[in-house]
């Protein structure tokens, strides 16, 4: 089943992805068993109890407790899926990895219809932002008088990650609700103005060839206005070395925004 579903799904490039996909496959097994089971019953009854074949109906019909068992069975399977898999997975999903795992941290700020990415830069601290400073060249309103801001790296629709290194992303929005979706990472988080929500994941595959089949994107999954359908950004997962190279080459806010 997992393989069957995978043929429709995008590549699975994150550490937690296979667990989600497996859970999804298991749920689909339950669905399939129920559907086929009842489906066979259904088709048989339609054939067997056609008025032509069975002119007189039975008042009592089924006498067994079959349905009670099947209902109980469904309930049991659901409990297993829920308690055994979904809830623990969610708890992991909301549990941000500790600093000791050397996570790569960044902030993603959505706006109509683009994704702004802010890296804290070498000092590891995000610079201060002030909405009064928002201009077209400074979409985040970064306050360059703040020393932490000067070395920040700000990109537009361009997300760079390092393979096998946990990523922590603080997701928020400047205007309306968007949804930050990385289909290949099995990651999605609504970007809600006024809230900064932290998510995390670990990419395990790279896409440095930049071929068409290797094109990974940030999608917007929540209706956010007339440009919703074209609100996307690209995503690159680098090897350790090439990520370093990218980082070194990326201009700090001080130069990219100017004064």
């Amino acid at each position: 089943m997992e393989k069957f579903l995978a043929q429709f799904m995008p590549v699975d490039a994150s550490e937690h992805g296979p667990y989600l996909d497996r859970l999804s496959a298991n749920v689909h097994w339950l669905m399939l068993v129920l559907f086929v089971g009842w489906g066979l019953f259904f088709v048989y009854t339609l054939w067997r109890y056609n008025a032509k074949r069975n002119p007189k109906a039975s008042y009592h019909g089924v006498r067994s407790h079959f349905s009670t068992y099947s209902e109980a069975g469904v309930a049991v399977v659901e409990v297993i899926l829920l308690v055994g898999f979904s809830i623990p997975m969610w708890s992991k999903w909301t549990h941000v990895p500790p600093a000791s795992s050397n996570p790569l941290e960044m902030r993603v700020v959505a706006e109509q219809f683009a994704w702004n990415v802010q890296y804290p830069g070498p000092d590891g601290i995000f610079g201060r932002r002030d909405i009064k400073l928002v201009t077209s060249s400074n979409p985040l309103g970064l306050d360059l008088t703040d020393p932490h801001a000067k070395d920040d790296i700000v990109t537009l629709n361009d997300l760079h990650l390092e393979v096998n290194r946990p990523v922590i992303i603080h997701v928020t929005s400047k205007d309306v609700i968007h949804s930050f979706k990385l289909p290949v990472m099995r990651v999605e988080q609504d970007a809600i103005p006024g809230m900064e929500i932290t998510i995390h994941f670990t990419p395990v595959l790279t896409n440095e060839t930049n071929a068409e089949s290797d094109k990974w994107e940030i999608a917007c999954a929540q209706l956010c206005g007339l440009g919703h359908y074209r609100m996307r950004g690209q995503m690159f997962v680098h090897s350790k070395d090439s990520f370093k190279k990218w980082l070194a080459a990326a201009p700090p806010a001080q130069t990219s925004i100017g004064s």
Binding site: F42, T45, E71
Partner: peptide, 25 residues
């Protein structure tokens, strides 16, 4: 998950209602 159970019950009952019937299509 709990709310899916009553739907399962209703649907199962409707399926089982067909058994033994004299179905007019």
């Amino acid at each position: 998950m709990i709310i899916s159970i009553p739907s399962v019950i209703i649907l199962s009952s409707l399926f089982l209602s067909l058994w033994g019937g004299s179905i007019r299509f």
